[in-house]
Amino acid sequence: MAKNSSSFLSGLQLGIPIFIGYFPAAVAFGLVARSAGLLFGDTVVFSMTTFAGASQFFAVNLLRSGALILEIALGVFLVNLRHVLFSASLYQKLSNPGRAQKAFIAFGNTDEVFSVASTREGKVTPAFMAGLEIPAWSGWVIGSAAGFLVGTVLPEDLQISVGITLYAMFTSLLIQEVKRSFRYLGIAALSGLINTVAVLILSIAPGWAFIISIAAAGGIGALILPEEDISGQEITEGHTYDS
């Protein structure tokens, strides 16, 4: 038991930086949600229940462009498919989780939580994961609320400027990947190009266009990228990748 409680604290120590990292992104989400016409309650409940940055930005943007709920949900599902890999990997790293613990830990398995947990040596305990996930979730929810409220007092020019936040965030995330391999830039450019043609020229509904774009660019990437680029992405303790 002593080991578990100290584990919660060591999780908390690593969870605080995630809180700090999430907060500004969540503020941006609160601002974007407000400008898309969501109410305060919508914004906070969205962050509390979905707890997925890219997906929430994506959903709000699609909503603003008038997409259907089903399109949005399918798009969100696709954006989140990567979590299947994260969770499969984290499950193997957990020491003896119970059913309720698994259900709880899965909820908070975001990209950042996963990358912190997966770079720990050896197994991690459910208590450690709780210490990691609780501040992460709090940062996301409190930041979303703060962003929404801040939006009501920002000068108009600044509110317009904040519209770039989402794209600045995606661009920064992409550059981090491109630093690992320039070929990723090609994959992202390809999906961006397909999406642009689909939306602006073919007038395909944004939700479907998004799905088509990432399925096509992802499929081509999986076929043509050299093994080293994929293994760099590989995060499960892969039996299939050993050879």
Partner: peptide, 29 residues
């Protein structure tokens, strides 16, 4: 699910990068 076929794992691991491109364009315009 711990042992997804190799092709599917390759595909899933590329999705975040492909998603970023489509999340930026054409929205940013």
């Amino acid at each position: 699910m711990k042992r997804l076929p190799r092709g599917i794992r390759r595909f899933l691991s590329i999705i975040p990068i492909a998603a970023l491109g489509a999340l930026i364009f054409p929205g940013v315009f």
